[in-house]
Design a protein around this nucleic acid. Structure first.
Length: 345
DNA sequence: AAGCTCGTCAACCGCTGTCGT
DNA sequence: TACGACAGCGGTTGACGAGCT
């Protein structure tokens, strides 16, 4: 049983604010400041709870609030900050003058999050959702040489920065076992292996896709969100529960998975190589005429050009959008727009 | 024109952290 | 140290409008 809602007490009013109520609140705060929100509504002659007054003021009536659509720069900032801060909306809002946490949260959930999903990017981790990919496409393509029924181990090793190392180890073990069995029985049947690998890889986060620790913001988050325990033997840093959402993890959003799987299926049928399709694009982060990568899936593939060829080839059956977006260097993780610039100059 | 679906966003709910006693 | 009051935060809800059939 949670605490009773404060507005249920004393029959206080709920729901949308009227212009008269707004004016009362504005007048009172301009004269006296908000002081104690608990006592404010009574003093201001409002039939509202203090919580409701505070929310109305901070999210709507405050004079320094900037209203209207988010600019491209604001959107870019939100994405960058979210990649580091996670769902710390108030922390993000603190770095966007005139925007409230509520506004940013709404904008994220209704605009940005959907765009990322459409591109095959996990909006929580800001990394490609490899856990949703069909690994059979990997093993049925260039990783697995059909003629010889042998696994291309060099290419498999090239995957290690994207795939759970345990999965790779199991993959190499099982496939080598299977190769010997298949060789004996002349049966090539990787299905059981792939089923196992798919499950194993489901929760894995590629390490190089974790944000770099060089930025001040990231350092701040590390300071805020981790507890360090030192023993005589080791020093371990663990995320505090409150900050778990800010750290890369795979959330089980089933709807998201359905959306992304649909997109990945589309990508697998539409994109069979990593060649950058739009090399004429030249852009800078300060150029207001730069193409909006959220609106163009092909533009989001630019990072793939920088992938090592063995990896790119090995992943030819995977979503080029997923891998291309962040590429393989750290800068692209924190700033996808700068990534475009780097690759096109 | 009516009904339906979907997107948007203001507002609410409940939990957590902080501070004073 | 324990407890209560309060402020703030993040997730969720629901009203409303636009677009579609």
């Amino acid at each position: 049983m949670g605490r009773a809602p404060c507005c249920d007490k004393n029959g206080l009013k709920k729901g949308p604010w009227t212009p008269e109520e707004d004016q009362k609140l504005i007048d009172y705060i301009q004269l006296h400041g908000h002081g104690s929100w608990r006592t404010l509504p009574k003093n201001a002659g409002l039939q509202r709870c203090g919580k409701s007054c505070r929310l109305r003021w901070t999210n709507y009536l405050r004079p320094d609030i900037k209203r209207g659509r988010f600019s491209f720069e604001e959107e870019e900032t939100i994405i960058q900050l979210h990649s580091v801060l996670g769902n710390k909306w108030s922390a993000i809002a603190a770095r966007l003058p005139g925007r409230t946490d509520n506004e940013i949260k709404n904008y994220w959930n209704t605009h940005i999050r959907k765009r990322l999903l459409k591109m095959g990017i996990d909006p929580v981790t800001h990394s490609p959702r490899l856990d949703l990919l069909d690994l059979s496409s990997v093993f049925n393509s260039s990783l697995y040489t059909h003629q010889s029924h042998q696994l291309n181990l060099s290419r498999l090793l090239g995957l290690q920065q994207f795939v759970n190392p345990d999965v790779l180890r199991i993959a190499s073990t099982l496939l080598s076992q299977q190769q010997s069995v298949a060789h004996q029985s002349e049966i090539n049947q990787p299905d059981l292996v792939l089923q196992n690998l798919q499950v194993q890889n489901h929760q894995y986060i590629p390490q190089q896709l974790v944000q770099p620790s060089s930025s001040n913001i990231h350092q701040e988050i590390q300071n805020n969100c981790t507890t360090t325990t030192t023993t005589t033997a080791t020093t371990t840093t663990t995320p505090t529960p409150a900050c778990a959402s800010a750290l890369p993890c795979c959330d089980p959003f089933l709807n998201d998975q359905l959306v992304m799987q649909a997109n990945l299926n589309q990508f697998q049928s539409n994109h069979t190589n990593f060649a950058y399709q739009n090399t004429s694009t030249t852009t800078t982060t300060s150029d207001h005429h730069q193409p909006n990568i959220w609106q163009d899936n092909n533009n989001a593939c630019v990072g793939a050009a920088a992938l090592p060829t063995d990896i790119a080839g090995g992943l030819s059956g995977l979503s080029s959008n997923c891998l291309g977006f962040y590429g393989s260097d750290q800068s692209s993780v924190i700033d996808p727009y700068r990534r475009i610039q780097v690759l096109t100059t």
